[in-house]
Structures are given as structure tokens and as C-alpha cells.
Amino acid sequence: MKITIDGKKVEAKRWDTVLTAARRAGIAIPSLCQLDSLENVGACRLCMVEVNHPHWRGAKLVTACEYPVESGLEVITTSEEVLRLRRANLDLLLARAPESRRLQQMSAEMGLEQSGYVRPDKGTACILCMLCTRVCEKLGCNAIAPAGRGLDKRIDTPFGGYPDTCIGCGACAAICPVDCIEMTDTAKTRTIWGRTFEFVKCAECGTPVITVEYRDYAIAHRSLPADYYNECSDCKRRKLAVKFAKVGG
């Protein structure tokens, strides 16, 4: 089907969202909480766009990440109002997490110097984009979830206790756009969500590779040989290089 984005005719597929159709056409729409491989939640509200249709009575403001395309849809991604709303929401986010480099970068792109609001004294820098919980769910662990509501809403383990199902993969910490998930790695252990995991150490050099639980998870859930997870990248590469050198010379 054909839709129009910023005056440009774009081919879209059924079940596409405005965001996917726009990205495919090379039209950038900012977003913080959306990933193609995760369920959309529409939390950050930075991908607001204006949509209209010849059959409608008037335009609507919607989140591009969730709005399904329909034939003849007209999308405007940069109207004054859309930009104003995006900036307003980014402003609110920046008040929450002023140290986030990702937010600083976005603010610079949108011409926002610093937040016009006070920093909330309650809660952490977490902007509740839900990437961490959705990633955890995607991996099948469900070790963390949102708890509470309003300003008290936070990401937590079940009842704030010991995360039984956590495997210490660290995906939540890595994906967090404001880096507010605490993860401490030492030579032997990784501590996250109040749980400490032992590392599998590289069979060659002893550097930490992956947590024991994550290795077991990978063995169980991925169709790769169990001994794939025992060495660090540097050692694997060096071993191959030595093999190459022999072949070559």
C-alpha cells in the first residue's frame, strides 16, 4: 500500500507501523524505547507524529512506533506541534536523567540546551523505557519487571528480592539508555540485581567470559556446541592465527 510521509510517497506493508515504514524510506524519527525485535510500548513519546487521512475529519497526534499504517495515510514527522511535543517530553526526560549521554545527544539534535524543570528528588535516573524488562522477557528470564506506579514506579526483581531467574547476562544494563542499572564485574564475579554470579573463565588465559548461568542458558537454548563458550575472544583469535600461520608457512 502507499502512504505519504512528509510529502514523500512511500510503499508500506500491512502491519507496518508508521515508524518502520518511515525508517525503511530513510526518514528518521527519534525514539528511545522502541526496538524492532521487542513489543512496542509507546513509553517515551518521542516518536510522536501527526497523521491524517483524506477520509478523516482531522489530523491526530500519535506515536509512530505503534500506529499501524493504512492505505492513503498522510504522515507529517516534523510539524511545529510535533517538534514541540517531542521537545517537551525530552525536556521532562532530561530533568530525570541529565547525565545520560544519549539524552544529551538527542537534546543537542533537537536544540534543547538543558532541562527547564527541576530534577525529581524521588527515584533514580531510570526513564522507564522498559527496554530492560522487555529484553529480559525476550530472553525468557523475566527476572525483572516494573513495580509500583506513578513516581514510585521502578524496575525491580519480584518483590524486590533475590532474582531466581536472572542469569547475569547483563543485557539489561547494556541496553539501558541512561545507564542506571548497576552491574559490578570483578575478575571472578558479576553482581547485578543483588545477586552475584561466578564467571566462566577463559580456559587459556583466565579472563572472565560469561557467567556460569548464562553459559548454561546458552547451551540449553542455542543450537551451538557446549564448548563454544569456554574461551575469550582474544584467545580464540590467537589460536586461529597460529593455525593460519602454520598453514601459510
Binding site: V135, L139, A171, I175, Y228, E231, S233, K236
Partner: peptide, 13 residues
């Protein structure tokens, strides 16, 4: 989704 498993899985580093 930043799970990092690809890094560990690659047999050649």
C-alpha cells in the same frame, strides 16, 4: 537486544 551472546559464541573471537 544487547544480550552479548554473539561475542561469546563466535568460535574465532
Amino acid at each position: 537486544i544487547s544480550c552479548g551472546l554473539c561475542e561469546v559464541a563466535c568460535p574465532f573471537g
